[in-house]
Amino acid sequence: MKRRRERIDRGIKARSGDLFALCSWREMLYLSTPRLLPIIGLLVLSFALSVYWQRVLLSVSVFALLAISWDILAQTGMISLGQALFFGTGAYLAGIMNHYWGWPPVVTIPLATFFGGLLCTGFLVPVLRLRGIYFSMVTLIIPLMLVRIIEATRIFGGTEGISGLAPLPSRWMELYLVIAALLATLFGFRRLMSSDFGLVLKGINDNDRSVMNAGINIYWFKTQSLFIASSVGAFAGAFMTHIYLFVGMPVFALDYSILPIAAAVVGGIGTFAGSVLGAFILVPLSEILRGLGGLRIVFYGVFLVLFTVAIPEGIFHYIQRKYHQVERWVEVEK
């Protein structure tokens, strides 16, 4: 019996890398395994972990959401250095609605998601015309400014913040809410970016002049992308508010800006799955490094530099390529 090696994607890919022709369950498995992996993995993890690590899983998911939100902006050609703006705005909105008006989390989280997105979009629309690093500069500045405003005006509890907020009904509810949100965003955004609308966003990143030349108002599309991204960030913030039962100036801290970028860069930009993978690597790592205190951010910084220089494509792209290159033995027909 003669055998030879053959790539497992042989005969599946049609013409280009993103068109597939499937004609058996095994070939279907080839495509569905990597997609089912995060779903099953998250569900299993939610059961298997101790209470402490469940909390870590929570913050992994939150940072993964922020990283996804960063990624969609990056894919539209906007490099944000201020994800904390989205996170903080959502967090404060949820806190305010809960504290001052007594609304339960079921109401505050969706409302904070929507209006947080709207508000952040409002903040950034005036600078939307800026390209490249000019946009980055402004996004870096805005959250730091907002902290100062809160400090100066002493609104919303000033430096003390607002504490004693309502928790979510149960620990399981917390966990599954955020896991559901993460999976929905991950798959939803992947779908969105391969739709025609998503292609326009990618086009803006590649060559905005050429998109303009198609009669498309790029600012309107950038605004939409901004709204989508900031809503996701605001959701993460609103959710965390009801986990910490507190909201204060730390929600605008640099951690919430830098860790998501680090996650997206380490994982690989442009796939969303990379962002999630990056968050799954970096957040637990930072838990383990917790003893190091301030050194954690130093590590993020070093990670950022190492990955941008050494593996600019990120881990996910690397794994993806290797996966498609996996070979199996097949019998040679006589």
Binding site: D196, F197, L199, V200, K202, N207, R209, A214
Partner: peptide
């Protein structure tokens, strides 16, 4: 300057949009 990330036929989607 085409949209480098995209395949040629996907380049056409943007004007068609």
């Amino acid at each position: 300057k085409p949209f480098y990330q995209l395949p040629a036929y996907k380049n056409m989607i943007i004007p068609l949009y």
